[in-house]
């Protein structure tokens, strides 16, 4: 099993005919994802990559039965694209777009609150259930089907962790890039819960960074309810306070959202915390062995 997406996910691409949308839709198709069409307002009725283009998500859902959407719409219009997808009944929305104004995301989050929908991102690499479906921009070839779940706020750092896992023979159930923005659809804790409840996930890698309290919130829940080993890393141990480190959400605001403070809480909650990002894969391997031995 896997969470959020699998081989049955019917995927549409919002921002389908743009350069990003085109390239990554092609990559997703190549990976074997069931992309059934796309949306570009004004280009409805045309065919792109051999698939139908619609003017709205509503039309696309009616015609294709899509339940998953991936968004490559430019920042100024991306929050609206998210709300449109939710309104059309899409169940899983993956927003890749980086640079959406915070005020727009506050609005979108409020709009989504009473709907049966999961938003992943924005400003994220997407979600992949290796061997089943890829909804995002991550390189498919580094992944391998297996039983480790990965939750992360970053892109290439997630690839780094996945690569270490795969090379140690640890495949992945689902890798969830939750995004690096201050307002995102799915928190670390919500993603961890999904994986903790997934019977085919045996261990979880949780990669966070400075800023906010998502990792400590998740760690406290894991302490109470965790049943599987969790390896944790927080990027930004050397980041100075008050400076944005690339991601809009990666900023040390006070003493509680530094890497050191988060790692301390995570350790106290029983997570396998690594100081070096080079040790993520090996630590997972050991934690699994220890779990089986114990």
């Amino acid at each position: 099993m896997s969470v959020l997406i699998d081989q049955h996910s019917k995927i549409i691409v919002q921002g389908f005919t743009g350069s990003e949308g085109t390239f990554h839709a092609g990559q997703m198709l190549e990976y074997g994802s069931d992309v059934v069409g796309g949306v570009t307002p004004g280009k409805g009725g045309s065919v792109h990559l051999g698939l139908p283009v619609f003017n709205s998500v509503e039309e696309a859902v009616k015609a294709t039965g899509a339940d998953t959407s991936v968004i490559f719409v430019p920042p100024a219009f991306a929050a609206d694209a998210i709300m449109e997808a939710a309104d059309a009944g899409i169940a899983v929305i993956v927003a890749i777009t980086e640079g959406i104004p915070v005020a727009d995301m506050i609005k979108a989050k409020a709009f989504l609150a009473d709907k049966q929908v999961t938003l992943i991102g924005p400003n994220c690499p997407g979600v992949i259930s290796p061997g089943k479906a890829k909804v995002g921009i991550m390189p498919g070839f580094i992944h391998q089907q297996g039983s480790i779940g990965v939750v992360s706020r970053s892109g290439t750092l997630t690839y780094e962790a996945v690569d270490q896992l795969t090379k140690l023979g640890l495949g992945q159930s689902t890798c969830i890039g939750i995004g690096g923005d201050p307002v995102i659809g799915t928190s670390t804790l919500e993603a961890v819960k999904l994986l903790m409840n997934d019977p085919d996930t045996e261990g979880i890698v949780m990669i966070g960074e400075i800023g906010g309290s998502m990792e400590t919130d998740a760690a406290r829940w894991i302490k109470e309810h965790g049943t599987k080993p969790v390896v944790g890393f927080i990027a930004g141990q050397t980041a100075p306070p008050g400076r944005r480190m690339g991601h809009a959400g990666a900023i040390v605001g006070g003493k509680d959202d530094t890497a050191a403070a988060k790692m301390e809480v995570m350790r106290a909650c029983g997570l396998h915390v690594v100081d070096s990002p080079a040790a993520i894969g090996a630590t997972m391997l050991e934690a699994l062995k220890a779990q089986k031995a114990g």
Binding site: S152, S154, A235, Q237, A239, A250, P277
Partner: peptide
């Protein structure tokens, strides 16, 4: 380029913000 000046002795250049922070951590370690 997304650049923040710090006052150490090892420069770094990375693709991706999370990996860039992690690389800084590696330098320190």
């Amino acid at each position: 380029l997304n650049f923040v000046k710090l006052d150490g002795n090892v420069g770094c250049m990375v693709n991706g913000a999370g990996l860039a922070m992690a690389t800084m951590d590696i330098i320190k370690l």
